[in-house]
Simulated assay, not measured.
Amino acid sequence: MADQSLPLTGGETPTVNIRATGGFPNPGEPLFRSINRLGLWTLYMKEVRRFFKVQTQTIWAPAVTTLLYLMIFTLALGRGGREVLGVPFASFVAPGLIAMGMINNAFANASFGLLGGKIQGTIIDYLMPPISEGELLAALVGAAVTRAILVGLVVYGAMLLWPGVNMEIRHPWAIVWFGLMGSILLSLIGVATSMWSEKFDHLAAVTNFVITPMSMLSGTFYVISNLAPAFQAVSRVNPIFYVISGFRFGFLGQSDIGDTNLAVLHGAIGLGVLNAVLAVIIYLLLRSGWKLKN
């Protein structure tokens, strides 16, 4: 704080206080010295309330769709006491359906936020608040993962009552880890898709030609050992395969990732590394303003 005399043209010279500008950023230049917890929580709650306000569409409807998958595939492929990995077909397919429902809804939630803002002209609501790019990414991903967990819990609860399905938990760490890593993976892909897309047709293209094939061909309804070697190699490149198989391992204690539990652990580590790399890339894209500030 410095006292300086500023002369006026027609009278006495008052003394006013002028705050020194040292330590302040230039106008328009953001400065973040710590985590803006309030801003992060506010944006997270905004995204949660957005999907929770229409929970019939965002939580209950996906759960019903997943249960329809279970019913159809059980009737079509589970007759005659068919077993896969040593368990009835219904018990084999149920964990994969839970994981698939979780990751699909994580992508759906994360892919709408920024795109909706661009189309509705409210993207400024994401860019102007005093939160960093990391906090913005964390809030969008966190809300998507929250939706995924809610859908997973609803489907799991329904499958507990489903006749012929055994949902005994054998490895809780695998359920938690692969469920979270799968949800975060698809949330990150969803944020990237939301940044890239300029209209809902772009989002629909990614959903129909990338996400849906990756989900359906991830081993949810079969073990990849039934495939030809070339298609097995393709399946092992698909990260969703490890999400589905690892999540199933938590319930069945068996997985087609490999013959040993160590193979499952390697898959878990690989998913964690992939998510970390994707998070860094998307963070850098957010910092650059790619497709957001044009």
Rank of each mutant, 00 (worst) to 15 (best):
A2N: 13
A2F: 13
S5P: 04
T9W: 15
E12L: 13
T13N: 12
V16H: 05
I18Y: 12
T21I: 12
G22E: 07
G22M: 05
G23W: 11
G23N: 09
P25E: 13
P27A: 06
F32R: 07
F32S: 00
N36S: 07
L40T: 01
K46A: 12
K46V: 06
E47W: 02
T56R: 13
Q57N: 12
A61I: 06
P62S: 02
A63G: 03
T65P: 01
T65F: 09
L67R: 10
Y69A: 11
M71F: 13
F73Y: 09
A76M: 11
G80R: 09
L85Y: 06
L85R: 05
G86K: 05
F89S: 03
F89Y: 07
F92I: 04
V93L: 01
P95G: 11
L97F: 00
M100E: 12
M100Y: 08
G101F: 10
G101P: 00
M102N: 02
N105K: 10
F107M: 03
F107V: 04
F107P: 02
A108Y: 08
S111Y: 06
F112Y: 14
G116S: 02
K118N: 09
K118L: 05
Q120M: 06
Q120C: 05
L127T: 01
I131G: 05
A138S: 01
A139P: 03
A139N: 08
A139C: 00
A139S: 11
L140T: 08
A143Q: 12
A143I: 06
V145W: 06
R147I: 02
I149P: 10
G152S: 02
L153D: 10
V154W: 05
V154K: 00
G157C: 01
M159V: 04
M159R: 03
P163R: 08
V165Y: 02
H171C: 09
A174P: 07
V176L: 10
W177L: 10
F178T: 04
M181D: 14
L186Y: 09
L186M: 07
L188R: 08
G190F: 04
S194I: 05
W196C: 02
W196S: 08
S197M: 07
S197A: 14
K199R: 15
K199N: 15
A205H: 14
F209S: 11
T212H: 07
A230C: 01
A230N: 14
F231E: 15
Q232G: 03
A233E: 15
V234F: 00
S235K: 07
R236M: 03
R236H: 13
N238L: 08
G246V: 05
L252Q: 10
L252R: 07
G253V: 03
G253M: 08
N261C: 11
A263D: 14
V264H: 15
A268D: 04
G270A: 05
G272M: 00
A276D: 03
L278S: 06
A279T: 11
A279E: 14
Y283I: 09
Y283W: 12
L284F: 14
L285S: 10
R287E: 15
G289R: 12
W290M: 01
K291G: 06
K293V: 02
N294M: 11
